[in-house]
Design a protein around this nucleic acid. Sequence first.
DNA 1: TAAAATAATTAGTCTTATCTAATTTATGTT
DNA 2: AACATAAATTAGATAAGACTAATTATTTTA
Lengths: 231, 231
Amino acid sequence: MRCFYLFLCVIKLGMYTLSEENYLKSIYRLAQQTDFKITPTAIAESLGNNPASVVDMLRKLTEKQLIAYDKKSGVRLSAQGLKDAVLIVRRHRLWEVFLLEKLGYHWDEIHDIAEELEHISDATLADRLDKFLDFPEYDPHGDPIPKANGKVPKPYSVTLTNLKAGDTCRVAAVRDTSSSFLQYLQKLDIGIGTRIQLVEKISFDNSLVISISGKENTTVSQKFGENILID
Amino acid sequence: MRCFYLFLCVIKLGMYTLSEENYLKSIYRLAQQTDFKITPTAIAESLGNNPASVVDMLRKLTEKQLIAYDKKSGVRLSAQGLKDAVLIVRRHRLWEVFLLEKLGYHWDEIHDIAEELEHISDATLADRLDKFLDFPEYDPHGDPIPKANGKVPKPYSVTLTNLKAGDTCRVAAVRDTSSSFLQYLQKLDIGIGTRIQLVEKISFDNSLVISISGKENTTVSQKFGENILID
DNA sequence: TAAAATAATTAGTCTTATCTAATTTATGTT
DNA sequence: AACATAAATTAGATAAGACTAATTATTTTA
């Protein structure tokens, strides 16, 4: 018995539960996306959980030294927590490339499958997949893929809403990767690399009038604009 | 709230928990491998679980109409349960081919990773992977891969222990896929297709004296022989 | 067939991860 | 500063899936 548990302990070293991994990833993404301090409520929202559950898990992650949390500065990943979170994101984005390029999925189908695949825990899997895919730099949504050494290329941060009327840009990446957003983009004929000109900002509700690939004007919401990262 | 649960219900339709899937697979494999009736104890052993836990789960699977269980005839998969179990096995074996052929893993490394990958639940994933791999018939351990329509090619069933002294055969598949067994095979220079001659059966403990690829004699145990499927 | 051994089951406990409801702590506004 | 609102936390409940220990059935074997 004692022996059996020792064994389990050894083979599980460095591995986390599905939930723990999802919390790490969520905290990492919040840290990337916003400059605000990361609160239990924000994490709860991003995971679709109750804040009370988040507080419990934060305690657990603190015990495991994956995060540090105090009310003043909010939640922060430890060196180890950051390393683990980056690896999960790396796996997610590599699997997305695989699903699109090798299995022929569309870009609005791959996110949810990659959410499952990213938790496969073999030590060399990510690196082998990386090599198999010929070391892609970006995933199909334009997000940079963290390197094997843990380095993360700087993600795009300027959005459509940052443009001034008359400016032209190219779509570099999308922030929201839900299928509803991506299908909307499909309908508008927008993909990575598409040229967009901001024609006008409607001051009433910050709607954006844009021209896609030089074609006739279309109006989109502020929320839409915030989810288009540009070059 | 009510709305949210309805949504969950819809997208989860036809999906099972990790545990449920592992029980289904285990029952399926026991049914394939032996003609004995499938008992809670046998399932417990195959999963490394306590029989009490198995009884609990059998109740649950019965409620979901995935199995039928009575003491007389043991556990049997329902039509639905069989369909689901076959799909899991299909996914497992396809992923094994992928890991070996595309990612360069060795045959003693792939089983455990495929145990995780087989639970990825997207509806079209198995078929896409199948196509990507060019519809392989056997996995790297020689096990037949169930077809998209649910048909399962007949697995090999004759083992080394069924031979008579002097008989020659070729290795068609292995029953045990643990890395300890596969590494042992590697050391003996045995793979799928290797020619083996049974030189002598030791009646004391049913050890087998064999000649591998025509080379000098080696002695292996009965347990070893039972795990080598031949053509 | 009776005793012994084995298998199946029940009852109760534990852990993980979630929830709701209630309470405490912060923040913001007048 | 006092109050109102929002956020964080605690306490207690629940469900899944595992466990141990105790009990009941069923086989074997003498």
